[in-house]
Design a protein around this nucleic acid. Sequence first.
DNA 1: TGCCGGGGCTAATACGTATTAGCATCTATG
DNA 2: CATAGATGCTAATACGTATTAGCCCCGGCA
Lengths: 348, 348
Amino acid sequence: MTAPPRRVTQRDIARMAGVSQATVSLVLNNRTDAEVRIAPETRDRVLRVIAETGYAADPVARRLASRFNRIIGVFTYEPAFPSGSRDFFHPFLLGIEEYAERVGCDLLLFTSAPVVDGRRRIFHQDNRLRLADGCLLLGREIPGAELHRLNGDGYPYVAVGRRDDAGGPVPYVGADYGTAVARLVETALRRGHRRLTYVGMGMTAESSQDRRQGFVAAATTAESARQVSAVPGAADATLDDLRADGSTVAFVEDFATAVALESAARRRGLTVPGDLSIVTLGDPTAPVPTDIAFTGFRIPREEMGRQSVEVLTGVIDGSAGGLQQRLLPCELVEGSTLGTPDPAVDRR
Amino acid sequence: MTAPPRRVTQRDIARMAGVSQATVSLVLNNRTDAEVRIAPETRDRVLRVIAETGYAADPVARRLASRFNRIIGVFTYEPAFPSGSRDFFHPFLLGIEEYAERVGCDLLLFTSAPVVDGRRRIFHQDNRLRLADGCLLLGREIPGAELHRLNGDGYPYVAVGRRDDAGGPVPYVGADYGTAVARLVETALRRGHRRLTYVGMGMTAESSQDRRQGFVAAATTAESARQVSAVPGAADATLDDLRADGSTVAFVEDFATAVALESAARRRGLTVPGDLSIVTLGDPTAPVPTDIAFTGFRIPREEMGRQSVEVLTGVIDGSAGGLQQRLLPCELVEGSTLGTPDPAVDRR
DNA sequence: TGCCGGGGCTAATACGTATTAGCATCTATG
DNA sequence: CATAGATGCTAATACGTATTAGCCCCGGCA
């Protein structure tokens, strides 16, 4: 066993080429400013030695000396890969990787962040965020306190998904759920629905709020537009509730809930959309087998990933102007689960 | 726009606590050697200031000064996330993330590596491998030249999947395809099959070689054991070939090929396994819809991911002894596609 | 009083690169 | 022939942390 060979440094190259370390650095960075001049022969000599030795600059030292790393952090509030969240994070990561590759950045997944109460935390004993030039934040819910702290630190970051202000506005690339939901509500009203129910999951996440707000804003001309909470695994209770209310259409926040609702209806001999229309408000986040083509919309997750990297790089190098907030449109999907409320209803 | 606040450094902490930078470093690293003594009051004072400021050591400077980073590199020879390879890389990543979290390491995805001829390359102008303490290598095929170079550099790495020697033995965590295939061949022979065909994809990848070798080694008592290459999209031609040869069982390397073969057989009025048995030699690497429960084996991808991180951390800190090579057993799956060759055959 | 020893801390340095001020040397100009 | 300006390079320093040699002070002992 020979001792591991010491790293080749610029000093070594310099010695071999008979120049100073500074010259090596200048050649390496291809500096051709008016301020800095290197004779072509010298440059070639240095480059030749570099090629011979296969020297590569130590990125760590480089980062310490200059300001940037070309590393983009990715902080996922839930583990990035495990199966439960698989279909949630994957499309984002796909877009993120694609754009990172384009701009020549590496991606650092902060897997070292300790899990407290089932979620990761950015800020703790040994916060390693500074390893990256900036960071992307992914997660269904992101604690405002952490965003607040990031703002205070002046650390460059971009949230994937809209986030409320937290000690100052939060830069994000989100999906325009409000508009998408409103469009679907309008379609339902146009088709004659008058009693609408929003079947939600929670009240806290911004993504949830945005959908609800779109629902409320567009449903003004409805006879009744109410909101209920889906209890996981209690599709039958939800269905009872809808029937009792006389609702003809349900706007279901969670895809799996919509699937469960549809099959509960079918089991009961009801047809969709004949007896009940069901609209989904987002893609499945976990694998749910279904043959039904639900009416709803597609979240542009991949594009969100791409653009979040784009925005972040702008924030990092300061080329992005003021606050960066983008909402991307969702693509409406015309499925087969939004019909007309009742055959008897007059529809022109 | 206020200027971005300068990073808080140990020097700042030192000033606030009225001590030297060295003392801060010592306190921070909890050094309690006999060589180094810090008075409890001083220690507390420093810790208090650290807590107040929320100071965190810059990992980059840390790495430059000491030896480690707690960053594990992940180099994928194909993009890690895009849909084509999705089901190939994902299980590995799942295991990798899990174990990295356990040992408190972050993961660096080398997305910046330039793509040449449709594949990424480690070694190029600005090789950034040294950002990480060590690196995991993923990919169906890995150029021997790159492994050779890694060995020469003494850079700690572990390949996920067995790799042939490349200028010295290659550390890896792989799956024992040879044994798994051999077991399936033995089962087929036991059930009376005498004419076997291996339907392969290529000859170069180690994973392919291992399977073929397992096939050949176990099929010695067969009347005929031959190998053919599957032409993508030409399942019918492959089927013709099998029938002409009189093969009663096909060992199919690629899952999608097996699916195509089965449906080609069904279209032709043949039954599986009645007229032809089909054995698959690995999990799907791309989403292929099928209801068939194929007989074959499962690759322990998740576990490979976990153990590759385990091995790598050992290599990095030098606690791992000599060469690290592990082959993990594959789990045999008893599906419904391996039957007996012919009803007329006597079987006891 | 003088010396020794040890506890508690700091000064100095290393890690490898990027950047900048400025030193030689040479050419052109008056 | 002195001077100004261009050219080509280097010395010095900064980045933030870890490590080590060693300084200072104080108490104990002869």
